[in-house]
């Protein structure tokens, strides 16, 4: 069950990155959330065979990575996790789509290969954008931003509670799993007969914890409404960030930069 501890540490590490100090960390979260959404919409709105025009979009995660002083290797590893899935789905494309769309010297390139690669690049770009967003903003700030953009309060509070107790419960789940494994004496796997009581126990403990949390909330005057402090201001820097990146994305969406660059370089 080392995987559990590994997962949790990984999670904690991403969470800690948000506590860093940098110009992009300081921006109001709303600017970052909106910019990320524009980014994703631009990326996914490309035609299925588009490949080259997607590449310049890598600039956004790369620049934020650098400005936010994030560990590139770690973020790259987190992004790479989505690869197998994208490749698996994408690999069906060459099977079904064999029209020749491109010739690279003597090579005929099927449309399926193009769209397969396109899927992989899309997956990498959108995953990178999401993970970089968390790393430079932090989950609670993202919730706050979404709430200020119209997400219902009940749901925002739900997200915050969930997030808070992931750390506690993953620890607890890890302990339960470890205790079982240490007494399993090498028998591999956990049968359903024992799974029920094991997870059921965890569930009961969780339920009791929820009751205690509720008690602690009542003791401090909770009356159905969770108040949080709102900080951050959507100022000039935020406006510039959103507008600057937003117009860049739209421009990159409209003009195929690599093509233009390639024409320039090859003299075509």
């Amino acid at each position: 069950m080392l995987a559990i501890d590994g997962n949790l540490l990984d999670f904690k590490r991403l969470d800690l990155l948000a506590l860093k100090e940098s110009p992009v960390h300081r921006l109001d979260p709303r600017a970052k959330v909106l910019t990320t959404l524009v980014f994703i919409l631009c990326v996914v709105s490309f035609d299925r065979y588009e490949l080259a025009a997607l590449l310049p979009f890598a600039l956004y995660p790369v620049v934020l990575l650098a400005l936010g002083d994030l560990p590139a290797g770690y973020i790259a590893r987190k992004v790479a996790v989505v690869l197998p899935f994208a490749v698996m789905v994408g690999l069906f494309n060459p099977l079904f789509d064999r029209q020749v769309l491109l010739q690279l010297g003597p090579l005929d390139i099927w449309g399926g290969w193009l769209s397969c690669l396109s899927i992989v690049v899309r997956a990498l770009l959108t995953a990178a954008a999401a993970i970089v967003l968390v790393a430079i903003t932090g989950f609670p700030a993202i919730c706050e931003a979404l709430e200020r953009l119209g997400m219902p309060r009940v749901f925002a509070v739900q997200l915050l509670f969930l997030y808070r107790y992931i750390f506690v419960l993953a620890d607890e789940g890890g302990r339960v799993a470890r205790a079982r494994q240490l007494r399993a004496c090498g028998t591999k796997g956990l049968g359903l007969r024992h799974f029920g009581p094991l997870v059921g126990h965890l569930l009961l403990r969780t339920w009791e914890r929820a009751e205690r949390v509720h008690m602690a909330m009542l003791a401090r005057g909770f009356a159905g409404e969770v108040h949080t402090r709102r900080q951050g201001r959507f100022g000039a820097a935020e406006g510039a960030f959103l507008l600057g990146w937003g117009s860049l994305f739209v421009a990159l969406r409209l003009y195929n930069l690599p093509h233009l660059l390639g024409q320039l370089l090859t003299g075509n």
């Binding site: 949390v213 008690m215 949080t228």
Partner: peptide
């Protein structure tokens, strides 16, 4: 309360 994880439920 006894377990601070029950008492500290907010993000920061």
């Amino acid at each position: 309360f006894q377990d601070p994880d029950d008492q500290l439920f907010m993000p920061t």
